[in-house]
């Protein structure tokens, strides 16, 4: 089966991420669903880097990539208001994460001599995708600095886990990306719930309820699709337990 190319997926994720952030910035919270594609793009690039056996775990790549993206978004939020000027905010976040991600990738390739194909592209994609997700999350949750570590960890886990869970014999991009979608929905669902709790109002804000509802629907659909795909991928050994060669 033909795989989706990194730049194709990232191109779509970039447009989708910017659209999502602008929608959220203009008060349409449901725009968070547009951030699911950046989750897929980041998970795909972690897969692209980790499948070559880096000598560091998938977890390290996830932590590192999200550190670049999330730190860029956190630092920029100090100066550029994510609520009043969302376009300037997202532009600054994407540009800074691109520079740091690309520089680190080039250093890993040229100075450390990793010799992994397209490591600089994958580094930049992870950094920019996670930066967009962080920016969107900050818009939803507001500038409560106490929530920054929570935002960082929840995004990290969602982008590093899909390949970590799917890796091994028979791993394929479709299943990994579908698992990434499951985790993206799960993450936005948790962000919605935390936004409800953080608003401290007796009646939940309609935007937060919309996030929770859309994420829950997405989660159910994605889990069912992923489970079907897992069953379809293992059909050869599902019935008898014999190795496929003996059929």
């Amino acid at each position: 089966m033909k795989e989706i190319q990194i730049h194709t997926l990232f191109g779509a994720a970039l447009l989708s991420g910017i659209a999502g952030i602008l929608l959220i910035g203009h008060g349409i919270s449901i725009g968070i669903v547009f951030l699911w594609l950046p989750f897929l793009s980041a998970a795909n690039s972690i897969r692209g880097m980790a499948m070559y056996g880096l000598g560091t775990g998938n977890a390290s790549i996830g932590y590192w990539g999200t550190a670049v993206g999330a730190t860029s978004a956190f630092v920029v939020s100090l100066s550029v208001s994510c609520r009043s000027t969302p376009l300037l905010y997202v532009a600054a976040v994407v540009a800074i994460s691109l520079v740091i991600g690309l520089a680190t990738g080039i250093l890993a390739d040229k100075v450390i001599r990793m010799r992994i194909p397209r490591i600089e592209l994958n580094s930049a994609v992870i950094a920019m995708s996670t930066a967009m997700i962080t920016a969107g999350s900050l818009l939803i949750l507001g500038s409560d600095y106490g929530l920054y570590p929570f935002i960082y960890i929840i995004i990290t886990l969602a982008v590093l886990h899909p390949y970590n869970a799917s890796t091994g014999a028979g791993e394929n991009q479709k299943r990994t990306l579908l698992l990434a979608l499951v985790e993206a929905c799960m993450t936005t669902l948790v962000i919605g719930i935390v936004a409800m709790l953080a608003s401290r109002s007796s009646i939940p804000v309609s935007g937060d309820v919309a996030i929770v509802a859309a994420s829950a629907c997405g989660l159910v659909i994605a889990v069912v699709a992923w489970y079907r795909l897992v069953k379809s991928d293992i059909y050869e050994i599902r019935w008898t337990g014999y190795p496929p060669a003996e059929h």
């Binding site: 590192w64 670049v68 999330a70 730190t71 956190f74 680190t104 570590p149 960082y152």
Partner: peptide
């Protein structure tokens, strides 16, 4: 959180 980010990078 920024120091943690710099540490992880």
């Amino acid at each position: 959180i920024v120091a943690a980010g710099v540490f992880l990078i």
